[in-house]
Write a protein that binds this DNA or RNA. Structure first.
Lengths: 165, 165
DNA sequence: CGCCAATAGTTGCAAATGAAACCAATATTG
DNA sequence: CAATATTGGTTTCATTTGCAACTATTGGCG
């Protein structure tokens, strides 16, 4: 006694094939949704308060650690695209946030570092970034926060491992 | 006995201001990185094997549940932008993957549904999507997988809640 | 009703994006 | 050590993106 389709003419995506995928519970979707929500929350602030794009902010964040880096190093550290890094660095240079000097060791490479002005912005933005993170993490216990971090790393590593071969 | 900066001229982003932010352990970054890695892993397959963009696939995934939907419904269900949905639907229509008929109840709205051809693709793509998810989840125990889902929802909800006010 | 506000979707346009071509410098190899 | 491959970074160009403006329709509300 199988019930006929409720809406004639509508294709029943479930009965004759694999059970329909529940997008809502699909890990890649959940990840993308969470990431987008968080990103949009914070990006607006960087943009309006500091005139920084997400990628400029990422570069700034790495340089804020105090070391000069080549663009290649920035690419590896941030996971950003080659071109994106180049443009972010260019824009930051124009605004005097970042300094460039060509590497003595390898004259193809340029070493990028924070200028004083950049350091000022960095000092201003970091507490804000932390504050946003705290606000987000208030939804979680400290244990859960640690666990989330761990799980995200696992999944990311796995995705990267599956990509190469 | 505070040590002098190791590299004179380099700005020390840590000592004189807030402790430098460790991008690596910063939740928004971890999220973006994991999401991008997973997305890139799968998107390529959709693209090369089925000629579908991520957004077209998302629309397909929702329609695969069997119900016709208005674009508005698709927007809510997928979190996609208005324009993005419109264009995805348009492309899918051209390829005969979805059908459109204008709603009798509200003639502004169009009801989008899967065509037979679309259902075929859907049936072909779903096992693949599941397989990818399984591959990813092999890095996790079932408990961890459930926990990750929960945590992602928490964070996303929090981010959305913080956005409105 | 008749007018104004809100909503479903589309389109125009300017900006963001990234693949591929490109330049310059270094590494490799016969 | 010359020829070639590789790498760091930039530029070009076609595509993608999304805001904002637009059309069409509906829903209030006096």
């Amino acid at each position: 006694m199988s019930a006929p389709p409720a809406r004639p003419g509508a294709f029943d995506g479930g009965a004759t094939g694999p059970a329909p995928l529940r997008l809502d519970a699909y890990l890649p979707y959940r990840l993308a949704a969470a990431s987008a929500a968080v990103s949009q929350l914070i990006a607006r602030t960087y943009e309006t308060r500091f005139g920084l794009t997400i990628w400029q902010w990422r570069v700034l964040a790495v340089l804020g650690e105090g070391e000069e880096r080549t663009q290649r190093a920035l690419i590896e550290r941030t996971g950003m695209d080659k071109v994106t890094v180049s443009r972010a660095v260019h824009a930051l240079t124009l605004r005097g946030i970042v300094t460039r000097r060509s590497s003595a060791a390898d004259r193809r490479a340029t070493l990028i570092g924070l200028s004083e002005a950049g350091a000022d912005i960095y000092r201003e933005i970091v507490p804000l970034a932390r504050a946003y993170e705290d606000l987000l993490l208030q939804a979680l216990t400290p244990d859960q926060a640690r666990e989330l971090d761990r799980l995200l790393r696992c999944v990311e590593a796995r995705a990267q491992a599956l990509r190469a071969p």
